[in-house]
Design a protein around this nucleic acid. Sequence first.
DNA 1: CAGGATCCTAAACGATACTG
DNA 2: CAGTATCGTTTAGGATCCTG
Lengths: 144, 144
Amino acid sequence: MTDTAETGPRCMLNSGAPLSELIQTGELLNQNCPSREILRHLTSRWGVLVLIALLEKDRRFSEIRRTVGGVSEKMLAQTLQTLEADGFVNRYSHPVVPPHVDYSLTPIGREAATKVRDFADWIEVNTIRILSARPHQSQAEAVE
Amino acid sequence: MTDTAETGPRCMLNSGAPLSELIQTGELLNQNCPSREILRHLTSRWGVLVLIALLEKDRRFSEIRRTVGGVSEKMLAQTLQTLEADGFVNRYSHPVVPPHVDYSLTPIGREAATKVRDFADWIEVNTIRILSARPHQSQAEAVE
DNA sequence: CAGGATCCTAAACGATACTG
DNA sequence: CAGTATCGTTTAGGATCCTG
Protein backbone atom coordinates (compact mmCIF):
# COMPACT_ATOMS: atom_id res chain seq x y z
CA MET A 1 0.00 0.00 0.00
CA THR A 2 1.21 3.44 -0.89
CA ASP A 3 0.61 6.70 0.94
CA THR A 4 -2.28 7.64 -1.31
CA ALA A 5 -5.49 5.66 -1.46
CA GLU A 6 -5.78 5.55 -5.23
CA THR A 7 -8.71 3.57 -6.50
CA GLY A 8 -7.28 3.06 -9.95
CA PRO A 9 -4.86 4.41 -12.50
CA ARG A 10 -4.70 8.15 -12.89
CA CYS A 11 -6.41 9.76 -15.83
CA MET A 12 -4.19 11.53 -18.33
CA LEU A 13 -6.26 14.64 -17.80
CA ASN A 14 -5.09 15.00 -14.24
CA SER A 15 -1.69 13.42 -14.54
CA GLY A 16 0.12 16.75 -14.54
CA ALA A 17 1.16 16.52 -18.17
CA PRO A 18 0.68 19.68 -20.25
CA LEU A 19 -2.90 19.81 -21.44
CA SER A 20 -1.98 20.63 -25.00
CA GLU A 21 -0.13 17.36 -25.42
CA LEU A 22 -2.80 15.04 -24.15
CA ILE A 23 -4.66 12.57 -26.27
CA GLN A 24 -7.66 10.89 -24.76
CA THR A 25 -8.85 7.50 -25.84
CA GLY A 26 -11.33 5.67 -23.70
CA GLU A 27 -10.51 7.80 -20.71
CA LEU A 28 -14.14 7.84 -19.67
CA LEU A 29 -13.72 4.29 -18.47
CA ASN A 30 -11.12 5.59 -16.06
CA GLN A 31 -12.64 6.34 -12.72
CA ASN A 32 -10.48 9.35 -11.99
CA CYS A 33 -10.98 11.24 -15.21
CA PRO A 34 -12.72 14.62 -14.97
CA SER A 35 -14.61 13.80 -18.15
CA ARG A 36 -16.72 11.52 -15.99
CA GLU A 37 -18.17 14.56 -14.25
CA ILE A 38 -18.98 16.27 -17.54
CA LEU A 39 -20.65 13.10 -18.73
CA ARG A 40 -22.81 12.93 -15.65
CA HIS A 41 -23.93 16.52 -15.98
CA LEU A 42 -24.77 16.19 -19.66
CA THR A 43 -26.56 12.87 -19.25
CA SER A 44 -28.37 13.78 -16.06
CA ARG A 45 -32.10 13.19 -15.94
CA TRP A 46 -33.04 16.82 -16.47
CA GLY A 47 -29.85 18.07 -18.08
CA VAL A 48 -30.55 16.18 -21.29
CA LEU A 49 -34.04 17.59 -21.60
CA VAL A 50 -33.06 21.14 -20.71
CA LEU A 51 -30.36 21.13 -23.38
CA ILE A 52 -32.89 19.92 -25.94
CA ALA A 53 -35.39 22.56 -24.89
CA LEU A 54 -32.78 25.31 -25.19
CA LEU A 55 -31.51 24.06 -28.53
CA GLU A 56 -34.83 24.95 -30.11
CA LYS A 57 -34.70 28.50 -28.81
CA ASP A 58 -33.70 30.66 -25.89
CA ARG A 59 -36.19 30.43 -23.07
CA ARG A 60 -36.93 31.91 -19.69
CA PHE A 61 -37.15 29.88 -16.51
CA SER A 62 -40.88 29.26 -16.40
CA GLU A 63 -40.92 28.49 -20.09
CA ILE A 64 -38.33 25.76 -19.68
CA ARG A 65 -40.32 24.46 -16.78
CA ARG A 66 -43.43 24.18 -18.93
CA THR A 67 -41.51 22.70 -21.85
CA VAL A 68 -39.72 20.00 -19.90
CA GLY A 69 -42.57 17.89 -18.60
CA GLY A 70 -42.35 16.81 -14.98
CA VAL A 71 -39.40 18.88 -13.82
CA SER A 72 -39.74 20.55 -10.44
CA GLU A 73 -38.70 24.12 -9.70
CA LYS A 74 -35.92 22.94 -7.51
CA MET A 75 -34.43 20.46 -9.95
CA LEU A 76 -34.68 22.88 -12.84
CA ALA A 77 -32.84 25.58 -10.90
CA GLN A 78 -30.19 23.10 -9.84
CA THR A 79 -29.78 21.69 -13.34
CA LEU A 80 -29.47 25.14 -14.87
CA GLN A 81 -26.86 26.12 -12.31
CA THR A 82 -24.80 23.05 -13.04
CA LEU A 83 -24.98 23.61 -16.79
CA GLU A 84 -24.09 27.24 -16.30
CA ALA A 85 -21.13 26.36 -14.08
CA ASP A 86 -19.90 23.99 -16.79
CA GLY A 87 -20.15 26.77 -19.34
CA PHE A 88 -22.93 25.18 -21.40
CA VAL A 89 -25.62 27.70 -20.56
CA ASN A 90 -25.77 31.49 -20.37
CA ARG A 91 -28.00 33.13 -17.80
CA TYR A 92 -29.18 36.67 -18.35
CA SER A 93 -31.21 38.29 -15.63
CA HIS A 94 -33.09 41.31 -16.91
CA PRO A 95 -32.93 44.12 -14.32
CA VAL A 96 -36.67 44.40 -13.97
CA VAL A 97 -39.33 43.61 -11.47
CA PRO A 98 -40.92 41.13 -11.49
CA PRO A 99 -37.80 39.13 -12.42
CA HIS A 100 -37.23 38.01 -15.98
CA VAL A 101 -34.37 35.58 -16.61
CA ASP A 102 -33.38 34.29 -20.00
CA TYR A 103 -31.37 31.14 -20.60
CA SER A 104 -29.45 30.35 -23.75
CA LEU A 105 -26.79 27.91 -24.91
CA THR A 106 -23.15 28.92 -25.16
CA PRO A 107 -21.31 27.89 -28.33
CA ILE A 108 -19.94 24.78 -26.65
CA GLY A 109 -23.30 24.19 -25.04
CA ARG A 110 -24.88 24.24 -28.46
CA GLU A 111 -22.38 21.67 -29.67
CA ALA A 112 -23.12 19.42 -26.73
CA ALA A 113 -26.87 19.92 -27.07
CA THR A 114 -26.68 18.99 -30.73
CA LYS A 115 -25.00 15.71 -29.83
CA VAL A 116 -27.55 15.08 -27.13
CA ARG A 117 -30.36 15.90 -29.52
CA ASP A 118 -28.95 13.44 -32.07
CA PHE A 119 -29.06 10.69 -29.52
CA ALA A 120 -32.52 11.69 -28.32
CA ASP A 121 -33.74 11.62 -31.90
CA TRP A 122 -32.47 8.10 -32.28
CA ILE A 123 -34.35 7.07 -29.15
CA GLU A 124 -37.57 8.69 -30.30
CA VAL A 125 -37.39 7.08 -33.69
CA ASN A 126 -36.57 3.69 -32.24
CA THR A 127 -38.68 3.54 -29.10
CA ILE A 128 -41.41 1.49 -30.72
CA ARG A 129 -38.86 -0.88 -32.14
CA ILE A 130 -37.16 -1.17 -28.77
CA LEU A 131 -40.40 -1.77 -26.90
CA SER A 132 -41.54 -4.44 -29.32
CA ALA A 133 -38.16 -6.16 -29.42
CA ARG A 134 -38.03 -6.32 -25.65
CA PRO A 135 -37.89 -9.81 -24.20
CA HIS A 136 -41.22 -10.37 -22.46
CA GLN A 137 -41.24 -10.24 -18.69
CA SER A 138 -42.45 -13.24 -16.77
CA GLN A 139 -45.55 -12.98 -14.60
CA ALA A 140 -43.38 -12.94 -11.50
CA GLU A 141 -41.34 -10.03 -12.80
CA ALA A 142 -44.39 -8.14 -13.98
CA VAL A 143 -45.96 -8.25 -10.53
CA GLU A 144 -42.78 -6.97 -8.90
CA MET B 1 -60.81 18.29 -12.97
CA THR B 2 -61.33 15.04 -14.76
CA ASP B 3 -61.64 11.55 -13.33
CA THR B 4 -57.99 10.75 -14.01
CA ALA B 5 -55.13 12.52 -12.28
CA GLU B 6 -53.10 13.16 -15.42
CA THR B 7 -49.94 15.14 -14.90
CA GLY B 8 -49.70 16.31 -18.46
CA PRO B 9 -50.74 15.55 -22.02
CA ARG B 10 -50.56 11.95 -23.10
CA CYS B 11 -47.68 10.82 -25.24
CA MET B 12 -48.51 9.62 -28.72
CA LEU B 13 -46.75 6.38 -27.93
CA ASN B 14 -49.33 5.44 -25.34
CA SER B 15 -52.34 7.18 -26.82
CA GLY B 16 -53.82 3.97 -28.19
CA ALA B 17 -53.18 4.86 -31.80
CA PRO B 18 -51.73 2.05 -33.94
CA LEU B 19 -47.99 1.98 -33.48
CA SER B 20 -47.25 1.81 -37.16
CA GLU B 21 -48.86 5.19 -37.79
CA LEU B 22 -47.09 7.14 -35.09
CA ILE B 23 -44.61 9.87 -35.74
CA GLN B 24 -42.65 11.19 -32.79
CA THR B 25 -41.25 14.67 -32.63
CA GLY B 26 -40.02 16.01 -29.37
CA GLU B 27 -41.98 13.43 -27.43
CA LEU B 28 -39.15 13.06 -24.95
CA LEU B 29 -40.19 16.37 -23.44
CA ASN B 30 -43.52 14.76 -22.67
CA GLN B 31 -43.57 13.38 -19.19
CA ASN B 32 -45.71 10.35 -20.01
CA CYS B 33 -43.77 9.04 -22.97
CA PRO B 34 -42.17 5.60 -22.61
CA SER B 35 -39.12 6.90 -24.46
CA ARG B 36 -38.26 8.68 -21.23
CA GLU B 37 -37.58 5.35 -19.60
CA ILE B 38 -35.35 4.19 -22.45
CA LEU B 39 -33.47 7.46 -22.23
CA ARG B 40 -32.86 7.00 -18.52
CA HIS B 41 -31.56 3.49 -18.96
CA LEU B 42 -29.23 4.42 -21.80
CA THR B 43 -27.92 7.54 -20.08
CA SER B 44 -27.67 6.01 -16.63
CA ARG B 45 -24.40 6.42 -14.81
CA TRP B 46 -23.13 2.91 -15.52
CA GLY B 47 -25.26 2.10 -18.54
CA VAL B 48 -23.30 4.49 -20.73
CA LEU B 49 -19.98 3.00 -19.74
CA VAL B 50 -21.11 -0.60 -20.00
CA LEU B 51 -22.37 -0.02 -23.54
CA ILE B 52 -19.05 1.52 -24.48
CA ALA B 53 -17.14 -1.37 -22.95
CA LEU B 54 -19.24 -3.91 -24.83
CA LEU B 55 -18.97 -2.04 -28.10
CA GLU B 56 -15.28 -2.77 -28.22
CA LYS B 57 -15.81 -6.48 -27.75
CA ASP B 58 -17.90 -9.09 -25.98
CA ARG B 59 -16.90 -9.45 -22.39
CA ARG B 60 -17.64 -11.54 -19.34
CA PHE B 61 -18.90 -10.11 -16.07
CA SER B 62 -15.63 -9.66 -14.25
CA GLU B 63 -14.01 -8.27 -17.35
CA ILE B 64 -16.63 -5.54 -17.63
CA ARG B 65 -16.15 -4.85 -13.97
CA ARG B 66 -12.44 -4.32 -14.48
CA THR B 67 -12.95 -2.27 -17.61
CA VAL B 68 -15.51 0.12 -16.20
CA GLY B 69 -13.60 1.84 -13.43
CA GLY B 70 -15.44 2.29 -10.17
CA VAL B 71 -18.51 0.16 -10.78
CA SER B 72 -19.56 -2.10 -7.93
CA GLU B 73 -20.68 -5.69 -8.35
CA LYS B 74 -24.19 -4.80 -7.40
CA MET B 75 -24.55 -1.88 -9.78
CA LEU B 76 -22.99 -3.77 -12.64
CA ALA B 77 -25.38 -6.69 -12.21
CA GLN B 78 -28.31 -4.32 -11.97
CA THR B 79 -27.24 -2.31 -15.00
CA LEU B 80 -26.70 -5.42 -17.11
CA GLN B 81 -30.13 -6.73 -16.15
CA THR B 82 -31.79 -3.49 -17.15
CA LEU B 83 -29.97 -3.38 -20.47
CA GLU B 84 -30.84 -7.03 -21.08
CA ALA B 85 -34.51 -6.43 -20.25
CA ASP B 86 -34.53 -3.56 -22.74
CA GLY B 87 -33.09 -5.85 -25.36
CA PHE B 88 -29.76 -4.05 -25.71
CA VAL B 89 -27.59 -6.77 -24.26
CA ASN B 90 -27.39 -10.55 -24.67
CA ARG B 91 -26.42 -12.71 -21.76
CA TYR B 92 -24.99 -16.15 -22.34
CA SER B 93 -24.27 -18.31 -19.35
CA HIS B 94 -21.92 -21.14 -20.19
CA PRO B 95 -23.07 -24.33 -18.47
CA VAL B 96 -19.85 -24.81 -16.58
CA VAL B 97 -18.56 -24.58 -13.09
CA PRO B 98 -17.21 -22.24 -12.00
CA PRO B 99 -19.69 -19.95 -13.81
CA HIS B 100 -18.72 -18.21 -17.00
CA VAL B 101 -21.11 -15.60 -18.38
CA ASP B 102 -20.59 -13.69 -21.58
CA TYR B 103 -22.25 -10.41 -22.41
CA SER B 104 -22.66 -8.98 -25.88
CA LEU B 105 -24.65 -6.27 -27.61
CA THR B 106 -27.77 -7.09 -29.59
CA PRO B 107 -28.10 -5.43 -33.02
CA ILE B 108 -30.19 -2.61 -31.58
CA GLY B 109 -27.89 -2.46 -28.59
CA ARG B 110 -24.99 -1.97 -30.94
CA GLU B 111 -26.81 0.87 -32.65
CA ALA B 112 -27.51 2.53 -29.34
CA ALA B 113 -23.98 1.96 -28.10
CA THR B 114 -22.58 3.52 -31.25
CA LYS B 115 -24.63 6.66 -30.61
CA VAL B 116 -23.53 6.71 -26.98
CA ARG B 117 -19.94 6.21 -28.04
CA ASP B 118 -20.21 9.14 -30.46
CA PHE B 119 -21.32 11.39 -27.66
CA ALA B 120 -18.71 10.04 -25.29
CA ASP B 121 -16.04 10.70 -27.89
CA TRP B 122 -17.17 14.29 -28.15
CA ILE B 123 -16.88 14.66 -24.40
CA GLU B 124 -13.42 13.12 -24.30
CA VAL B 125 -12.16 15.32 -27.09
CA ASN B 126 -13.69 18.44 -25.56
CA THR B 127 -13.15 17.94 -21.85
CA ILE B 128 -10.08 20.14 -21.76
CA ARG B 129 -11.86 22.84 -23.70
CA ILE B 130 -14.85 22.59 -21.38
CA LEU B 131 -12.76 22.71 -18.23
CA SER B 132 -10.78 25.71 -19.39
CA ALA B 133 -13.85 27.56 -20.65
CA ARG B 134 -15.62 27.06 -17.33
CA PRO B 135 -16.48 30.26 -15.52
CA HIS B 136 -14.22 30.39 -12.47
CA GLN B 137 -15.76 29.60 -9.14
CA SER B 138 -15.59 32.19 -6.38
CA GLN B 139 -13.61 31.46 -3.21
CA ALA B 140 -16.85 30.92 -1.32
CA GLU B 141 -18.05 28.33 -3.82
CA ALA B 142 -14.69 26.62 -3.94
CA VAL B 143 -14.64 26.10 -0.19
CA GLU B 144 -18.18 24.72 -0.21
C1' DC C 1 -41.38 35.63 -11.77
C1' DA C 2 -37.34 33.36 -10.39
C1' DG C 3 -35.63 31.36 -7.39
C1' DG C 4 -33.72 30.19 -2.17
C1' DA C 5 -34.53 27.63 2.25
C1' DT C 6 -36.40 23.90 4.48
C1' DC C 7 -38.10 19.39 5.20
C1' DC C 8 -38.96 14.97 3.91
C1' DT C 9 -39.27 10.62 0.98
C1' DA C 10 -37.49 7.53 -2.32
C1' DA C 11 -34.01 5.93 -5.01
C1' DA C 12 -29.20 5.14 -6.00
C1' DC C 13 -25.16 3.50 -4.43
C1' DG C 14 -21.39 0.88 -2.06
C1' DA C 15 -19.44 -2.68 1.17
C1' DT C 16 -19.77 -6.86 2.87
C1' DA C 17 -21.17 -11.51 3.39
C1' DC C 18 -22.94 -15.41 1.33
C1' DT C 19 -24.20 -19.20 -2.40
C1' DG C 20 -24.62 -22.45 -6.56
C1' DC D 1 -16.99 -16.86 -11.11
C1' DA D 2 -21.13 -14.57 -11.15
C1' DG D 3 -23.99 -13.32 -8.98
C1' DT D 4 -27.89 -12.48 -4.68
C1' DA D 5 -29.14 -10.62 -0.07
C1' DT D 6 -28.73 -7.36 3.31
C1' DC D 7 -27.51 -3.23 5.38
C1' DG D 8 -26.28 1.49 5.92
C1' DT D 9 -25.09 5.77 3.64
C1' DT D 10 -25.57 9.26 0.24
C1' DT D 11 -27.80 11.59 -3.27
C1' DA D 12 -31.79 12.76 -6.06
C1' DG D 13 -35.94 14.50 -6.02
C1' DG D 14 -40.45 16.67 -4.72
C1' DA D 15 -43.58 19.77 -1.90
C1' DT D 16 -44.17 23.72 0.45
C1' DC D 17 -43.32 28.18 2.04
C1' DC D 18 -40.91 32.42 1.59
C1' DT D 19 -38.61 36.72 -0.59
C1' DG D 20 -36.73 40.53 -3.75
